[in-house]
Design a protein around this nucleic acid. Structure first.
Length: 599
RNA sequence: GCGGGUGUAGCUCAGUUGGUUAGAGCGCUGGCCUGUCACGCCAGAGGCCGCGGGUUCGAGUCCCGUCACUCGCGCCA
């Protein structure tokens, strides 16, 4: 007999009654009775009840053995009396009588309980991640993650994609997020950077003729955390394909995404095909480029009404007159909401969005038809309110909030307010995954801080109209073959058809202020490669952690990462980051120059 | 870097307008209970009320500062 087990803890059934078997696992719970001690023995697979009778020599030691100790039990599989069958458990028809017992490793006092689904402080959970991972919910999330990744791999391989590993120690890139740097011992004063994504490598694989590449790729960006953004590192399903148009990428990837979501939907629906929304339309209707299509209402531009004669709302009027805009955020069916509902949203805008506030008008049936009510309604002639409501598709019993400012600010507040209003009103559709493609991103944006034109997304993207557009159009009017996949308001991936011509690359970078020499230096690998026959190519990179997060229904990305860091990018379990031995610093030719308060 | 929230027993939480000895559940220890499976019953141990100042006759409670965790803003081609 194997020294640890003949079966796992989710294997024994009525058919095994009478067999002598061995199980190993953790003590999940204990119930002590005068005639018997019951132990729920748990492993990765499930739970089996062990019964220990007082005649056993080890009765006392098992009785005192703490929860979460690892034990090995040998004994006979017994049938349970009809009355004692536990129908909630796969192994509930039987139990294992302990004839021999070994305590493999007794547990110390637990910093957090394993059984049950109570919530616990995250720092304790992270410090003792190995314990938290024993708990059912997290354990299942991680199993789901593994299954999702297998499924993604299979779907890609079935389509003829090949998986390659790309370097982790690579060169810093001047674009994008802050890099993580690694000092070079052999090259004093020089640094590697961890890849923010294998962007250039995957394009070089296309130049190398591999045609279809994918990788479950680790990506490193030194940026601050969010609920849906793990600090430091995350994984992408990185994809690139040669001789592909934007449409080819969509045809290849949409079935992978829809398929994997359907596979693990567990009763939730996935709507296909994914609607395609131009970036500009998304900003206008949803206030951002990651719309949550589960929300059943859209924003409405009402700027035109604020300059009409008779409208006395000076603050917004002057904003519109100086080139700004006003977005209306519908709040349907709010007739029965108390004043506090509106106050609360106003406070939310001030606190969370650091906005001046969120004005609103309530719409009611009055003597002469639709009437506007609320603190700012008096600044508007009633016919303006009626026309404004009509444009926003609202009627009696509804309300509308207003977001005003420069286009960017107005959209931003309106988009966030749309989500907040929907949340407060319980109007977000449940049990559905609503995807969309966002297409036609602008190639460039105006960088107000540095007073220059900058890339809006990926500098390697192909501008729509190609070289002609780069040469002859206003850079801010050029669109790119650049696209995102969004699901339920979460940006899942972004991708693009790449600019594969050397001249086009130089020109595109020149517009963003990068000289020929700088491009040669910073993007040496790629620009050189493109001189030797680069195929047209494009790709995309869905975020694996976010896919799993959506499928797991997790509120927080750390719930789907095995060993995550906290918001301050610290690994509380491994104590990283940490100071290092001075000898290590000397080898790397580094000397510390810490801020005063840390010296 | 900035703003919000939280911090009371190993864990989850309650704690009134500032007023006796800071409570409950889970867990732990001991005892009881004829088969439990969220077992039940009795008893017990366990508290720098995050930390430091202040106001007050008196602070878990009010004020200031600080730390930790978290959510958001900035950041994220």
């Amino acid at each position: 007999m194997h020294i640890y087990r003949t079966h796992n803890c989710n294997e024994l059934r009525a058919a095994n009654i009478g067999e002598t078997v061995k199980l190993s696992g953790w003590i999940h719970s204990k119930r002590e009775h005068p005639n018997a001690l019951f132990i729920d023995l748990r492993d990765h697979y499930g739970i089996t009840q062990v019964v220990v009778y007082p005649v056993a020599s080890f009765f006392e030691s098992l009785k005192r053995c703490p929860l979460e100790s690892v034990i090995t039990i040998t004994g006979e599989v017994l049938a349970r009396d009809d009355m004692a069958i536990n129908k909630n458990r796969a192994t509930g028809e039987i139990e294992l009588r302990a004839d021999e017992a070994i305590i493999e490793n007794a547990s110390a006092k637990l910093p957090l309980p394993i059984a049950g689904d109570q919530e616990y402080p995250e720092d304790i959970r992270l410090r003792h991640r190995y314990l938290d991972l024993r708990r059912e919910k997290l354990h299942n999330n991680i199993i789901l993650r593994s299954n999702v990744i297998s499924s993604l791999r299979k779907r890609m391989i079935d389509q003829g994609f090949m998986e390659f590993q790309t370097p982790i120690l690579t060169a810093s890139s001047p674009e994008g997020a802050r890099d993580f740097l690694v000092p070079s011992r052999l090259n004093p004063g020089q640094f590697y950077a961890l890849p923010q994504a294998p962007q250039q490598f995957k394009q070089l694989l296309m130049v190398a003729g591999f045609d279809k590449y994918f990788q479950i790729a680790p990506c490193f960006r030194d940026e601050d955390a969010r609920a849906d953004r793990s600090p430091g590192e995350f994984y992408q399903l990185d994809i690139e394909m040669s001789f592909a148009t934007q449409e080819d990428v969509f045809q290849a990837i949409e079935p992978v995404m829809a398929g994997v979501f359907e596979e693990f939907a567990d009763g939730r629906t996935v709507e296909t095909p994914f609607p395609r929304i131009p970036y500009k339309e998304s900003m206008e209707k949803y206030g951002n480029d990651k719309p949550d299509l589960r929300i059943p209402f859209e924003l409405c531009n009402v700027s035109e009404f604020f300059t009409e004669e008779g409208v006395e709302f000076k603050a917004f009027k002057s904003i519109v007159e100086s080139g700004g805009m006003v977005q209306a955020i519908p709040a349907p069916c709010t007739a029965d909401k108390p004043r506090s509902f509106f106050d609360k949203l106003n406070k939310w805008a001030q606190k969370e969005m650091q906005a001046p506030g969120l004005g609103y008008i309530r719409l009611e049936d009055g003597e002469n038809g639709l009437e506007g009510k609320g603190p700012i309604a008096k600044f508007f002639p009633q016919d303006v309110i009626r026309r404004m409501a009509a444009k926003a598709g609202l009627g009696a019993g509804d309300a509308m909030f207003f977001s005003a400012g420069k286009a960017g600010d107005a959209y931003k507040l309106a988009g966030a307010a749309r989500a907040e209003v929907a949340k407060q009103l319980g109007l977000i559709e449940e049990n559905v995954f609503k995807f969309c493609w966002i297409v036609d991103f602008p190639m460039y944006v105006w960088d107000e801080d540095n007073k220059k034109v900058d890339f809006s997304h990926n500098p390697f993207s192909m501008p729509q109209g190609g070289m002609d557009a780069l040469k002859n159009k206003d850079p801010l009017d050029i669109l790119a073959y650049q696209y995102d996949i969004v699901c339920n308001g979460i940006e899942l991936s972004s991708g693009a058809i790449r600019n594969h011509q050397v001249d086009g690359m130089y020109k595109a970078f020149e517009i963003a202020g990068y000289s020929h020499d700088v491009v040669d230096k910073e993007f040496a690998g790629m620009i050189n490669a493109f001189k030797y026959g680069a195929p047209p190519h494009g790709g995309i990179a869905p975020g694996v952690d976010r896919i799993v997060m959506l499928l797991a229904g997790a509120e927080n990305i750390r719930e789907v990462i095995v060993f995550p860091m906290n918001q301050q990018a610290q690994d509380l379990m491994m104590n990283a980051p940490a100071e290092v031995d001075p000898k290590q610093l000397r080898e790397l030719h580094l000397r510390l120059d810490l801020p005063k308060d840390l010296k």
